[in-house]
Amino acid sequence: MLERIRSDFWYELLNSPVTVVSAVIIALMIIGCTFAPVFAPHTPFDPATISIMDNNMPPAWADGADPRFLLGTDLQGRDVLSAMLYGGRISLQVGIGAVALSVVIGMIVGLVAGYFGGMTDAVLMRVAEIQFAFPPILIALLFNGILKASLPADVFAQAAVPIMILAIGLAGWVQFARIVRASAMVQRGQDYVTACHAIGLPTVTIILRHITPNILGPVLVLAMLQIAVAIVTEATLSFLGLGTPLTEPSLGALIQIGSQYLFSGIWWVVIFPGIMLLVMVVAFNLVADWVRDYLNPRLR
């Protein structure tokens, strides 16, 4: 696999301008949001720097705008652009964090089930199927609700991001477990695994050093698709008021806040974060699509 990446990766990539643009957008967003404190013109999560007297300013090109606020301000006087960068950071953190958690759980379950088979496989996969029967958003709501009920309100508010990662991560591992199990079952019967057994390698080494690298392709594709899903899930939860606190809104929470003002002419508070969320999700999907085609030998 690694060899193939070296030979035609750049050629294939550059032949797909859509993917290049998407990848650039993702890179810009990740850099822009990760270093939001550097790039953002204001610090919207620091209440001391927000002035209520600056609220409801339209974007810089509209009448009555203030050049300090390129995309305008919200009802609290927060700079919308800065809030988007900081909010996008939360969205990316949750998206990537939740998928990382899903991948870890899914790979462990999938490898164990696929490699050992039998009863282990049956039990693990039935559990997975039961969870799979429920929509992920419902599972995330459930975990979120349990944590909200069991944690003191102030702790819950402060640990919003880890809680979202946990809730969405726990809701998304089943798909990973299923594809990893399928691949592991295929790999288990391969000659190289038999050879590993023959030379007396311990099972853990066989699974981790030899089987795992061979099943990473589909996991990678799914992970990229799932990041987009996780970002949308987080936005949905926040939109429903279950996510990040009002004072540190993610993109979904910003859209929720903005949606209250749809009829009042203050459109910029909802439109810009909405566009950013849309672009972010579409870009992840397009890149994931390309990676899937690239790794699929049948399409070559």
Binding site: I52, Q158, P245, L246
Partner: peptide
């Protein structure tokens, strides 16, 4: 909720850090 948020930012200017639980 908006009044509380405004209060949070007004108090931040005198150094009082307010963790808002809006529910």
């Amino acid at each position: 909720g908006q009044i509380c948020q405004a209060t949070v930012s007004l108090l931040a200017r005198v150094g009082i850090k307010v963790n808002l639980i809006a529910q």
